[in-house]
Structure formats: C-alpha cells, structure tokens
Computed example of a mutant assay.
Amino acid sequence: MTDRQKAKAYWRENLRYLFFLLLVWFLVSFGAGILFKDTLNNFHIGGFKLGFWFAQQGSIYVFVVLIFVYIRLMNRLDKKYSYNE
C-alpha cells in the first residue's frame, strides 16, 4: 500500500467514525430531547422526566462520553496505519 492509498484509507475510516459519532449525538440531543420527549417523559430519573433530563443534561453527558470514545478510536486508528507517535 502506497503512502497516498494509506492516507486515503485512514481518512475514509476517520470520516466513518465521525459520521457515526455525530449521528449518535444528533439522535440523543435532538431525538431524545425534542422528538421523542413525550414518550421518554413516561420514565423518570432522579425525580425528573427522562425527556427533560436528556434535553437539559443527558445530551451533554453523552457528548463528553463520545469525546472519549473518539479519542480511543483515533488512537487505535493511528496505530493501525502507523501514524502514532
């Protein structure tokens, strides 16, 4: 595999990770906080309706978790394509 092919494969896989993680973030923030809020409000967390909780705090927690997932995925991807330091 040439360096150019290696770089293309690296970025293709990187963009796939980004798309998937942004899709998860969108579904949690927009989906759970806005679209599915009425259904989720039938459940409670800590005395608050689940739809409200996702809109106020849950999507932020998921975003922070996604940052750490992205770091882990990128470290593995860097090692796979020998771009690690």
Rank of each mutant, 00 (worst) to 15 (best):
I34E: 10
N41G: 04
K80S: 04
L40G: 00
I60D: 10
Y17E: 05
I71M: 13
L27K: 02
R4E: 14
W11S: 06
V28D: 00
S82P: 02
R16F: 11
T2F: 05
L40E: 00
G58V: 02
Q56V: 15
S59T: 13
Y10R: 05
M1W: 07
A32Y: 05
Y83R: 14
I71K: 06
F68R: 03
A9N: 07
L22C: 15
V28H: 01
R12Y: 09
Y10D: 03
Q57C: 13
I67A: 10
V28G: 01
E13N: 09
G31D: 01
I67F: 12
Q57F: 15
G46C: 04
G46L: 07
V28S: 02
T39Q: 12
L50M: 12
K8R: 13
L40M: 05
S29T: 10
I45F: 10
N75Q: 14
Y17W: 10
F54A: 02
D3Q: 13
F30N: 07
N14M: 14
K37T: 07
N75F: 13
R16C: 12
K79Y: 08
H44D: 09
E13A: 09
Y61N: 05
L23D: 08
R72I: 13
N42I: 10
A32Q: 02
L15C: 10
V69N: 01
M1E: 06
G33I: 00
L77M: 09
S29G: 11
I67G: 04
L77E: 03
S29L: 07
W53K: 01
S59I: 02
Y81Q: 01
S59L: 04
F52Y: 15
N75T: 12
K8L: 14
G31K: 01
T2R: 09
K8H: 13
N42C: 08
W25M: 12
G47E: 02
N42L: 11
L50Y: 03
W53Y: 06
K37H: 06
